[in-house]
Design a protein around this nucleic acid. Sequence first.
DNA 1: CGTCTAATTGAAGCATCTCAACATGCGTGG
DNA 2: CCACGCATGTTGAGATGCTTCAATTAGACG
Lengths: 247, 247
Amino acid sequence: MGAQLSQAYAHLVRQLESIAFLSNDDKMQLSTLQFQTKSIAQRHDVMIHGAKSSSCCIIVKGVMCRYKMVRGGKRQILSFHLPGDVLDLQCLDLDFMDHSIQAMTPCEVAFFSQQALAELMMNSPSLNLALRRHAAVDASIFREWILNVGRRDALPRIAHLFCEVFARTRALGIDDGRRFTFSLTQSEIADATGLSAVHVNRTLQHLRKQQLISSRGSSHTIIDTPGLERAADFDPAYLHLRMPQAA
Amino acid sequence: MGAQLSQAYAHLVRQLESIAFLSNDDKMQLSTLQFQTKSIAQRHDVMIHGAKSSSCCIIVKGVMCRYKMVRGGKRQILSFHLPGDVLDLQCLDLDFMDHSIQAMTPCEVAFFSQQALAELMMNSPSLNLALRRHAAVDASIFREWILNVGRRDALPRIAHLFCEVFARTRALGIDDGRRFTFSLTQSEIADATGLSAVHVNRTLQHLRKQQLISSRGSSHTIIDTPGLERAADFDPAYLHLRMPQAA
DNA sequence: CGTCTAATTGAAGCATCTCAACATGCGTGG
DNA sequence: CCACGCATGTTGAGATGCTTCAATTAGACG
């Protein structure tokens, strides 16, 4: 339990530091936040479309996604979220959820009270800014996804998704610095890119043939990062990371 | 000049009131804001991708759009903005623009200082909330656009765009309550929906044949609102409007 | 009235989708 | 430890939605 709390704290700090400057005082204040951690089974929803958005939580472990359904049962994934991501900074001010949030892997999340967060933001202007930046970056990523889905062909579109996942993970300092591997079902990729699962399958084969990635089941490894970024037309500027994302 | 100032004020109030409650005191405080108005010629950029985002402005008159280019020169429009919209609540906290903003019609915008806005938000918690809601609704609209572009066919996709423009205009109390007409070039519709201009042309013909809309040049009129909403799979919930959008 | 932009049309090609079958891998219960 | 069942990945074939190119028409404006 204590370990989870400190892990939640560490991830949140890393996440915020990837996009904003935090003073030691800021970190101290963050560490006083009261958490309540909870495990979420894979494929379970943490927030449901239409429900009142009350609680505020950050991801401690695992990957989650926002998604929305369309008439006819098709699903569109709207964003991925990694450890340290604050899930509903944007939704807290709204009366109900306009989408759902699901655990793509088994997850740990830390819930904390809206008031505690509000007080924190009142007390520390720099933390306030960091959290606002976090929400602003989320919005920027949404915009890039509109572009990705609207104007890129299947191959660059999937490649772009992979580049983003890699860049954001790297920004958290989670990856081992060498080969980057992540897990994503072909139909999850399909839902995130607005393609059919079959076409994702074929496009992944192209990416493999071009030696940009390799896959084992639903586990994908980026082999040639610069090549993949070229294929994806990827420019990480929209992530608004503080550090140049060194390889 | 005075007229423009009060118009800017009126639009901002209407915009915020469409999504949040404002007290008389809030409105009073808003009315003390110092504006500087400026005319923007059609097709001119107010903000440019990559530039530092410093100023903060609201639209007084006209329609603007956010957009982004992709390798190969294709454009993707990310959102439309109507009078009263605050343009860069989200971008102020970021170091540079990750997209551009353009006047789709001749526009009037009111610039005001970032500090004045910050003070206002400090002084009034309810105005603070209203402006945060405004940004949150923007993000919600981005999410709906990802869904629209990713998972809807051309006809419902264009229909959805039209429904949104109508619903948001109606929420401002701008339309005359009867037939709703707006101006949008076919290639602008193409850029907003991720389609080609030619296909937009053909799809508009379908919409006309189905008696849902009529067009004269780049001017479109919604004839059958419920029918169009049905065709679009449109649910206005994601706009988070306070009022049920009465016809 | 010419000039320019935007809308329209036709034809051909390609990207992507759907359907349907089959293969592979993995976890679980026997 | 094996056998089964389920989820996922793979493949083929045919259909279609959308794009591109290129030519033509229609409007808007000085």
